[in-house]
Write a protein that binds this DNA or RNA. Structure first.
Lengths: 126, 126, 126, 126
DNA sequence: GTGGTCTAGACCACG
DNA sequence: GTGGTCTAGACCACT
């Protein structure tokens, strides 16, 4: 798992970390029980404060994606593949829904939106 | 043009106002030269600080969507329909692009994404 | 609302604060929309770090008991009286359940437990 | 005596062990002089560190519930049945007292609390 | 003024 | 070693 943070981004650093770890878990790159880097090691690695990495891990723990144990470290939480797939889908559905609604509000008709979608899908795939 | 702001939203109030005015212009609801509510009247109407509405209008002016003249008020800026259509499209393209990339990162394959897209388009249309 | 914290307690300070604010809300002492002391003012008042009061407020916000807005402050969240009563009851049910189960595990029979309960109820009421 | 520990619990493992041994003694399941599993055997059995089981036994020894002799092992300490009964009762009284006080602070009246108590007693008994 | 983020240290409990 | 709590500052965005 490679984590990259940008201090110039408007997005909080802890949020950037959280999102990237979440992605690695949801995509299946990380598996149940896999150890995560310690908050201190990660902080050192990313050159950010320990509190920042801790905050990211706290958020992940609240969402039941990881578990942390004093004296042992942090690990990918138990989960069923089905649950993971649901979470993945939910995440994208919500984002996609917002874009579609916004396009409607802007007066973009359905066929134009579908055209844009097709073109972008190809671009990303290439 | 109806503007609604939520103080409980995590989005800054001035950003909420800015987005809704921008939408009304890009969608064609407002036309070139149409007068906008005065900064003070809008602030009173929305029960927010004058500073907040001022900030929203300043942002809109910087993006050349509106023009403000002391003593006269604010108006929808001149623009060609073509330019407007481009702006609309760019806005959506960028958002849609981000969602598609995110779905790839999560390991959602293209056919599943297209399925989600179809379903959501119907939902929104209904 | 009077908040008292003990630095010598084993309970984290932020948890002590959180519990006392929660109590004031659940008991009806504080009402919907009532302003809470700012995290800075409370920190100064209790002579603890701003981060400590912030953490307490964050927890309360996550449990939808309060809402915080940048530039405005923190307030008791909207809630129905019914919901509040449910939360109160839930809180006590859970604690009481644990005690009753523990007493069973220790081999205390039901009549003895009921006797203890009666006596303690009187004590507390007096 | 069956001991079960959960690494995901927020309660320290040594505390979990201590509580369960204590329970077995206070409930009368274990008698004066009964041998306890050795620190090492228990550690192996529970798959925890020897340091952890040692800490649990040390706590129990400090509370005079067990005695340890180098080279011989650990045993349930001498005690009168009367003393045991008192300890049991004190333990529960204290916990129950806290719950009753908390319910008062939340504004739950005595009759509601008694109703909750009755219902829960039945649930646990079933 | 407010809350939100972040830093660079510290001490503690757990294993 | 680990994570959990806490401090005493800082800067920023919002109102």
């Amino acid at each position: 798992m490679n984590i990259i943070v940008s201090t110039s981004s408007k997005e909080p650093i802890y949020e950037q970390i959280k999102l990237q770890v979440q992605r690695s878990i949801l995509s299946g790159e990380l598996h149940e029980g896999d150890p995560l880097p310690s908050i201190r090691a990660l902080a050192k690695d990313l050159r950010v404060s320990v509190i920042t990495t801790k905050k990211a891990y706290e958020k992940l723990e609240r969402e039941k994606l990881i578990t942390s144990h004093v004296g042992k470290g942090s690990f990918v939480a138990e989960h069923s593949d089905k649950l993971l797939a649901e979470k993945r889908r939910h995440l994208i559905e919500r984002q996609l829904y917002d874009v579609i609604r916004e396009s409607r509000k802007l007066g973009i008709n359905e066929s134009e939106l579908q055209e844009i979608f097709k073109i972008l899908c190809q671009e990303v795939t290439e």
